[in-house]
Amino acid sequence: MPKTTYAAITLGSNSFNMLVARTQGHRPQVIAKYKRKVRLAEGMGTDGRLQDAVMQRGLDCLAMFGRMLDNHKVDRCHVAVVATATLRSVSNADEFSERAVPLLGCPIEVICGMREAELIYQGMVANTQGGGRRLVIDIGGASTEFIVGEGQDVLLKASLPFGCVTGQRQFFAHFPYQEQDFIDSAADVAKILTEQGPMLRRLGWNAVVGASGSVQSVIELLAHRELPQIITLEVLQQLKTEILQQHSADLAGITGLNSERVPTFAAGVAILLALFTQLNLDRLQLSGGALREGVLQQLADRVAG
């Protein structure tokens, strides 16, 4: 009997992702990955609507996903599509969904921040070695999720309104970047963390893992430089210095920086710096999974059931 093929699609504020998988040994085995930097949060207008050009960028990506679902012969009843912060916020999210459904052939579920945090944690636990109490940080395009958990148990979860796309637009919209841009970004993060920060610190943790493009961009850079793939305050301070020394907005002088990461790199580093300071972090490692893997695991359980 052929194994069922299924797909998890996540519509983030920065990236759209699709994982196509089959179950092998009670675990999802990914057979294809698709990703586009749609940067949906760039289109959040002052009127609260998603701008037409950015909406179209997202729809073009979903049309491609739809074609790939056909190529992999995925039954639409075995597809889960979840959307996060930007589509939680914009007033014309229903219009986006109405135009997207015919392209994908299945509905979009816009999930709340707390549900997003749960799925991020599930994706981390299923795909990351280690144990003990862990703090998971996922810096998205327009929101950042924090989860403290042990094993399968979530002890605290929070979804806060700052991210690398919105942060880039708010604090790093003009080049050359200045020291004040980092100061202003840090103040914003500190203000938003006023309530949750002390709660996180009181719970404590044995290890910190990061699950996001901002974390991945730094890890990729460290790997390119043949340095330990662990983010520390010293690493981030060095990257901040390099960002401030750049002569062009393409940040071409930063060795090992993937060009696809450039549009949100400064804001991502600034947010990480602020979190290291506010939460007294000493080291952060890359998670093996996050939201898309959490959605995939949930879907695999549903297909198996």
Score class of each variant (00 low, 15 high):
Val269Asp: 05
Cys77Phe: 00
Lys157Cys: 04
Gly149Phe: 08
Ala21Ile: 12
Ala100Arg: 03
Val189Arg: 08
Arg201Asp: 02
Glu95Phe: 07
Gln246Leu: 03
Arg134Trp: 11
Glu42Lys: 14
Leu69Val: 09
Gly305Gln: 14
Asp250Thr: 07
Cys61Val: 13
Pro228Trp: 09
Gly294Val: 12
Leu296Gln: 01
Ile192Val: 15
Leu244Ile: 04
Val218Arg: 02
Asp153Tyr: 13
Gly43Tyr: 11
Asp52Tyr: 11
Ile231Lys: 10
Met44Phe: 09
Gly132Tyr: 13
Val208Gln: 07
Arg49Ala: 10
Ala83Leu: 08
Ser212Gly: 11
Phe175Ala: 07
Asn206Asp: 15
Arg27Thr: 13
Asp282Gln: 15
Gln237Ala: 05
Arg39Trp: 08
Gly131Ser: 10
Leu160Ala: 02
Glu260Asp: 12
Gln298Leu: 14
His78Pro: 00
Gln229Leu: 11
Ser185Gln: 04
Phe175Thr: 06
Phe182Val: 00
Gly131Cys: 09
Thr128Pro: 08
Ile31Lys: 10
Leu156Val: 13
Met18Glu: 04
Glu116Val: 15
Arg302Asp: 01
Asp153Lys: 15
Ala117Arg: 08
Gly140Ser: 03
Gln245Glu: 11
Leu222Glu: 04
Glu95Asp: 02
Ile219Gly: 01
Leu62Glu: 06
Glu293Arg: 14
Ser13Asp: 01
Ser143Asp: 02
Arg133Cys: 14
Ala32Pro: 10
Pro176Asp: 02
Phe96Lys: 06
Gln297Arg: 13
Ala63Leu: 10
Phe96Pro: 00
Ala83Asn: 04
Ser185Cys: 14
Ala223Cys: 14
Arg283Phe: 07
Gln216Ser: 11
Glu150Cys: 10
Gln24Asn: 05
Val125Gly: 02
Arg22Gly: 00
Arg261Val: 06
Thr84Gly: 04
Gly151Tyr: 11
Arg27Ala: 08
Thr23Gln: 14
Leu233Ile: 10
Glu179Lys: 07
Cys61Thr: 13
Gln278Met: 01
Val295Gly: 01
Val165Pro: 00
Ala126Tyr: 09
Thr128Glu: 07
Val110Asn: 03
Ala80Trp: 13
Leu59Ser: 03
Gln285Ala: 09
Ala190Pro: 04
Phe175Asn: 00
Arg39Ser: 03
Phe146Tyr: 15
Phe171Glu: 03
Leu233Val: 09
Ala190Phe: 07
Val136Lys: 00
Leu222Lys: 06
Val218Tyr: 05
Ile219Asp: 00
His78Thr: 01
Glu109Pro: 10
Leu50Pro: 05
Leu40Phe: 09
Asp47Ser: 14
Ser185Val: 02
Asp94Met: 11
Gly113Leu: 15
Leu244Glu: 05
Leu272His: 04
Gln216Lys: 15
Ala249Tyr: 13
Gly268Lys: 09
Arg261Lys: 14
Asp60His: 08
Ala223Gly: 05
Glu116Phe: 15
Gly140Arg: 14
Gly58Tyr: 12
Leu19Cys: 05
Asn258Ser: 02
Val79Lys: 07
Lys240Arg: 13
Leu291Pro: 07
Leu222Met: 03
Gly167Asn: 06
Gln129Ser: 13
Ala252Val: 06
Leu19Trp: 03
Leu221Ile: 01
Thr46Phe: 10
Glu226Arg: 15
Phe175Asp: 01
Ala266Ile: 11
Ser91Tyr: 01
Ala223Trp: 13
His78Glu: 02
Arg22Asn: 04
Val54Tyr: 06
